[in-house]
Each structure stands twice: as C-alpha cells, then as structure tokens.
Amino acid sequence: MGAEAILRVDGLSMYFPVYRGVLRKKVGEIKAVDEVSFDIAKGETLGLVGESGCGKSTTGRAILKLYDPTAGRIELQGKDITDLEGDALREIRTDMQMIFQDPQACLNPRMTVGSIIAEPLDEHTRLKKRQKRERVRELLNAVGMNPDFENRYPHEFSGGQRQRIGIARALALEPKFIVCDEPIAALDVSIQAQVVNLLEDLQKEHDLTYLFISHDLSMVRHIADRIAVMYLGRLVELAPRQQLYTMPRHPYTKALLSAVPEPDPAREAVRERIILKGDVPSPANPPSGCNFSTRCPIAEEKCRRETPAWREMDGGRFVACHMVQ
C-alpha cells in the first residue's frame, strides 16, 4: 500500500502469560497474536476474519495500545507509537477509536446518552459546556438519531440504537482510524444492514479508515476493500476482496469460505464443502511448524517442521503456506 498507509503493523505479537498453582508461577504463554504484519491505506476498510479465539480482538486492542505488545512495531500516520506512554499516548488516542461488539456492555447504564457521548470530549478537549452539547447533538444527528434523545438512558434503546450511540461516542473526537470489533455480531439481520450502511456513510463523509473485525464472511465481503484471514494467532492470507473470495489460495481460507451457508437451497445442494476435521488447537500449545497443519487437508511432512513464511504474491496478495506457489 506504500506511502499512503495510515497504519502499519509489523511483526506484531501479543503473548499472555499463563500462571498456575498457589504461587502463581508462570508456566507458559498464550500466543494470542503472533508476528502479524499488514498495512491499512487511508480511507480503506481492512476486514479481519477468523474463528472465535483466533486473536482478532487482541490484534485490534494491541494496535490501539490497550495492551503493551510483546513484540513488533505499530506506526500510525508515519509515527512509531509502539512504545508511547502517558501524555504522548493520550494525545494519539484521539486519532484512534474502537466500536465494540456488545453495545450494552460499554454504555454506562446510569449515564444519559448525552453524557456518554460527551465523555471523550470531557477527557480530551477544553470545549465549553454549550459547545459540548452542540457537538453531542450534531453527533446524534450524524448517526441517524433524534438529538432530543440526549437526556435518555441506554436501556430505553434497542440494540441497533445502542450501537449507534457507541458509534457516535467513537466519532466524538473526529478520529482518523477506527477498530470496529464485531460491531454487528449482537444484532439481528434486519438491524445489521442499518448499522453497516451507517458505517459506510460515515466513512465517506469523514474519510475514515476501518479495521473491521468480524466472523461474518458475507458481511465482510460487502464492507471490506481487502481482507486478512487469521488462524490461531497468525495471518494466513491477505488479499483484495475480489481475489480473496473468488480465488482463495490458502487451504484454510478455502475451507472457511466453503463452510459459509448460502441462503439458496439450489446452490447449497451442489456446493462443494471442505469439512475440516477436529478442532482448533489451543493457542497455549500450538503445533510445531504450520499452525494449520493439524487440520490441513494437504499438509505434508515439511508443514509439521517449518513455519511457513508470510510472503507477498501477485496482485497485492500475501499468503503463509508452503504449498502455495
């Protein structure tokens, strides 16, 4: 993506220590994210997909510096933010925001919608009371809600409306980059489209860049420009939308796409499914060599020995697999 990248992630790892016994001795570590590298261009949406527990949220949180990464480098707008702390970190926080999966959990039930949305403004700006109120009403309007709702409480709203409140809050400081962590997973199908359309409109209006985390491969095909596929803490493939969905190269991407049920009985009846055997291994004890080797239908001896490198292919595609030429 070259010079226009707003975010660069290089070799990012996030390991969580595992303690055991009364003395809380460290007995190992969970490799939640392991040597992950990618760029996101300004105004782009990068989809991050993978199964539950594969490390998507941890990647998003580490990028936002909600964790101290174990290794690697994070660059935002050309500036290395990996080791920022204190005031310097607070300053760049205004450029990066997060939208969460469960709109219920992150909205304080005792605060009014207005004060929830104004909270980041209290923390990071010196706006006067009246200016803040104006901004809140502006934000409510931007997410398609009645500004007069500012005095109501979160429980008075539906899931979709609460997600809009979460989005309004994330937009308060005019961030440039937003991590959307499963923003529609808790919503019904009929409400999902409302929220996705809103996110797309806001992106156009405010020139936003998204990391869109999801396990819904159909929705990611709709919203993302490029898609990164993650398995057991590592990226296995990254490609532009069209290439990834029509010509997946990595055996895991192929299996994942073939497992998505299509709302079309005729197609479902003749579809070729790759049914993977077994479960995802524990990230505390990943297999040697390729992480996918325990379930990969085409694994060979080499796969169990050597970790495949993350390689750039034609057409902006990256793959980590010994068998992909």
Binding site: G160, S190, I191, A193, N197, L217, S218, R221, Y245
Partner: peptide
C-alpha cells in the same frame, strides 16, 4: 438485507427501517 458470500457486492445493503 443479507449480503452474499458468493456474489458481487451491491452498492448499498437493503436495510429494514425500524425495530
């Protein structure tokens, strides 16, 4: 309202207003 994993992307998702 449901995008398809197998089909070309549509410009905008058809959304169902209201609750």
């Amino acid at each position: 309202a449901m995008p398809s994993v197998d089909a070309e992307r549509t410009e905008k998702l058809h959304s169902i207003a209201g609750q």
